[in-house]
Structures are given as C-alpha cells and as structure tokens.
Simulated assay, not measured.
Amino acid sequence: MPIRPSRTARTTAGALVTAAVALSAAALPHPAAAAAPPAPSGKARAHATAAVLDLDGTGRTAVLRGADRAYDTASIVKVDILAALLLRAQDAGRPLSEAERDLAEPMIRRSDNAAANALWRRIGRASGLAAANERLGLTSTTGGPGGKWGLTRTTASDQIRLLRAVFDSNGTVRRGSGGLDAGSRAYVRTLMSRVESGQSWGVSAAGSPGARPALKNGWLQRSTTGRWDVNSVGEIAVRGHRYLVAVLSDGNASMGDGVSLVERTARAAV
C-alpha cells in the first residue's frame, strides 16, 4: 500500500522512487486521413509513472504516490529484446554473430523497427522474452501478442529491474542460468549511450549538464484512441551519483505532449 515518506526519507540516497503523475492533456486535432487514428478526446487524461534508483546509494525503497501500474512499452522493449538475445548467446557459449550485431545496433541506436521485428522472432517472441525476464528478475512484464512487441506491458519498477540487470553487477553468471555477464552488460550500455541525437530526450532531462546519459526511448500512437504512449528509460548522472530512471506514460494528446510530460516527471522524481 503506498505511503507518503517524510522529508528525510524523500532525500535518502538510494531510494527507489515510484511516482505517479496524472495531468490533463489538451486535445489536438489529428490530420484527416482515411487510415488515421481518431482525433484525441479532450476528456482523456495523460498519466505518467516514474521509478528512480540511486546506484551509488543504499537501495532503500519509498513509494511517493500512485500505483505502479502497467503501460505499453513501445520501443523501450528493445532493451529487453537485446538482453534476451544476449542470454541466448551466453547459453550457447558464443558472442553475438555479425548478423545479430547488425540488427542489435540499429535497433537500439536509432530504434529500427525492422531490426526489432527480426530479433523478436529470433528470441522466440513473448515466450522467449518471458524466459529471459524470469532470469533477470522482472515480475510484471508481459510480451506483446504475436509480432506486436511494442504492445508488451510493463511497469516502471520492472524497468528498473531490467536497468539494474544492465547497469549493476550481477555477480557470477553460469551458462543457462543467472543474468547478463560483464561483456553483455557493457555491450548494452555502449549502445544505449550512443543513441542518435534526435532520440536523446526523456530521462536525460533530469541529468546534470554535460553528463552523457545512456537511454532508450519509446513512442506509440494507439489506433483506437489517437493518443500516444511515450516512455524513456536509462542511466543518468546527477551531482556525482548514478541514477537509473524509468518514466512511462500514456494518454498523451501528441508525441510532443508526451515528451514534455516524461521530462517533467523525470526531473520531479530525481
């Protein structure tokens, strides 16, 4: 059950912070087109949930407000797809093949959907993602149906678990069990720190000026409502501390509104 921490608890280093923010979203008209989604309704509200973990702190947990509910991942699931691919390669006792790297790198760095389609099939789609996530400690993520990896459902706290599997030490990893080994973690971190400049928005807004973030963003317009899912996850540096940050949102009237909401929420949470 959510609790409201004291001022001391809010400032304790190492807090895993889950903050839910509900903001009204103004309706913006969608260009008329035969196959276009409907115009967003002004009655809908945008929501965002943020989770933050100070990697250099004690790891204490404090829930600020709101439920840690599930959202569509959109393209942030590409980090999870890559983690599943790397676990398969580890189990086979081999590095990623050249063909796999040729798909993994554009999938993360420029959010290439064709590459994600190919690797989603290679890991075994939702069942393969579930097997990897069990090893990585995720508990609230469900793979999308069929080929629809972008409709994977996850929570902000589960995204922190995934980020910890990438940015924190997992100890000894044995073939067929455990999480990502040191080489796999370094590979994911490298790609996330080299996303194209046009995709460097999101949780990076909460970082210190000049600090280089490692992140992956996702955005998806829902055909049923015309509204946008906009998400951002990654590692940032703030005043000498490394923070893992996950911000998930839905119900945005436009992608721009979603980006603004994600960045405001990230700043407030950190």
Rank of each mutant, 00 (worst) to 15 (best):
R4K: 10
S6R: 12
G14S: 05
A15Y: 01
A19C: 02
L23W: 11
A27I: 13
A27N: 06
L28F: 10
L28Q: 08
A32F: 04
A32I: 10
P40N: 06
A46K: 14
A50Q: 02
L55V: 12
A67L: 13
A67H: 07
D72C: 07
V77Y: 05
V77M: 05
A84N: 06
L86N: 03
A92Q: 07
A92G: 09
P95A: 04
E100Y: 04
A104D: 01
A104E: 00
R109H: 04
R110K: 15
A114M: 11
A114R: 10
A116W: 13
R121T: 08
R122C: 00
I123G: 10
A130L: 08
E134S: 04
L136A: 07
T139A: 10
T141L: 12
K148P: 01
W149P: 09
L151Y: 09
T152Y: 05
R153D: 01
T154P: 00
T154F: 02
Q159E: 15
R161P: 09
R161W: 10
L162Q: 01
L163K: 02
A165Q: 02
N170L: 14
N170V: 14
R174H: 04
G179S: 13
L180F: 09
A182Q: 02
S184K: 02
R189D: 02
R189L: 02
L191W: 13
S193P: 09
S193D: 00
S197C: 03
Q199F: 12
G202I: 12
S204G: 15
S208R: 01
G210Y: 12
W219G: 08
T225K: 03
V230K: 10
I236L: 10
V238H: 06
G240A: 14
G240K: 12
G240P: 10
G240H: 11
R242E: 01
Y243E: 03
A246V: 14
L248P: 06
G251R: 11
G251K: 11
S254L: 12
G258I: 14
V262A: 15
V262R: 12
R267N: 10
A269Y: 07
